[in-house]
Amino acid sequence: MNVLGWTTKHGPWPQGVSCGHHAGLFVLLTDADKGRERLALQVQCFKAEWDLMPVAPTADLSFLQAQRLAEDVDLQEQMRRLSGMGQLTVSLTKAQTTLSKPTSGRQWIHSRKAQHDEMLQDEQILRSMVAGPKTALSSLRHQADAVQCDLLIKQQDVALTQERLITQAAAIDTSPNASLFVTGPWPPFGFAKLRTDHAAVT
């Protein structure tokens, strides 16, 4: 059994999810072993109550580990903060342009610098898109052809935020190969963070 997350609510939970109890919290468990299946179940659980502290779907956290973490004040504090919140993932995607093969070292480093500068510009566009009201913003993540971030949003603000993003996108002037994906709401994955201490491990 692997842990999907913690919640303060009773459910009911979707099929394939069972529930344990420890330290005043409910621990949601599943037999599903693929990350994607677990993610789908987490989304269902999350949408039922908007109260899910999600485990990374590929983390394979055991019930025992989840019980130990449930006693952690840091976890309980984060759950209070994230209750009633979800995240929207905003991804600015660029169609890849093929670069001509560099013939000199100078040309190579300049083409890398151009890529780097373009990445900074994309970051700037993304930052301006998500500059409006939100509860928190994750750090930016980079993929080969995209830069993305997560917005932490109250349940009642989701529709409004989506509308605002649509209005802003229409007002932005950008190159034709760029597009913006707004996906969610998801459980607040990007804002659920616990770190083990090195000292605690030894």
């Binding site: 999600p54 990374a56 779907p57 983390a59 993932t89 770190r195």
Partner: peptide, 16 residues
């Protein structure tokens, strides 16, 4: 890509 990127987020024990 977006979904795959998300699979590694959430509570995870890291830094080791």
């Amino acid at each position: 890509d977006l979904v795959d990127g998300l699979l590694h987020h959430g509570v995870v024990i890291r830094g080791e």
